[in-house]
Amino acid sequence: MESLQSAPPETRTPTTMSGIGRVLVAVYGVLALAALGRSFVQIVSKYEEAPLAYALSALAAVVYVVATIALVRPGVVWYRVAWATIAFEFTGVIVVGTLSIVDPALFPHDTVWSWFGRGYLFIPLVLPVLGMWWLAKHRPTAGAE
């Protein structure tokens, strides 16, 4: 990425997130908190009922947390982390969402991604799209923003 040569990390814009991006981060933060809380409850109280679904919930929750942090942190590395985590989420919601409808027996217990995130007002489906759009428009180049 060309910005690696053109901008040492110290001179890069201090906040990747300002303006409407803050709203995106806020929603990500809430989703991360909700997914983390729910997955904590599932694992503590009934993990053995559906280890796959609940392990997946936990993984998704952790990725949401990382994505939230990556969106806030400045710099090229965090920018790539944000891309990777958001792409992971998008893949997850599409794959698990489709599977949960095509073959409900695979996911008898809810995950954050079941039915494309129906239990979360479809936010898990919409948010990665908004996130990727935002990232594409806000490459961390020197002096940007």
Partner: peptide, 22 residues
């Protein structure tokens, strides 16, 4: 508290939206 703290750090219209989201 998290939303309000953030709103005080950077005061613009989107901070108000964040308050609403919270």
């Amino acid at each position: 508290p998290a939303a309000a703290f953030w709103a005080l750090l950077e005061r613009n219209r989107w901070s108000t939206v964040v308050l609403g989201v919270a």
